[in-house]
């Protein structure tokens, strides 16, 4: 189920997030089991804080989070 990018970190990347909804939001599909996530800051699936990145865990509770 596509979710709006509000609430997602500005540096979180995944294939679908390079496309936008008709409303211009980046597309994240947190339930998709084949989504590969990376952090733009590291270009790797690991955040600057050393923890894995994905749509569920890259929230405001992480020190590296930046609102889009």
């Amino acid at each position: 189920m596509p979710s709006p990018s509000a609430g997602f970190c500005a540096h979180l990347r995944t294939k679908t997030a390079y496309y936008r909804t008709p409303d211009g939001e980046r597309i994240f599909k947190p339930d998709e089991s084949t989504a590969c996530y990376t952090c733009l800051k590291t270009q790797r699936p690991v955040g600057p804080d050393g923890r894995p990145v994905d749509a569920q865990s890259c929230g405001a509770d992480r020190g590296c989070f930046e609102q889009e």
Binding site: E32, S33, T34, A35, C36, Y37, T38, R44, P45, V46, P52, D54
Partner: peptide, 11 residues
Amino acid sequence: GGIGGGAGSAG
């Protein structure tokens, strides 16, 4: 997926 995710195959 190594150090990453996305290894599903249920589609």
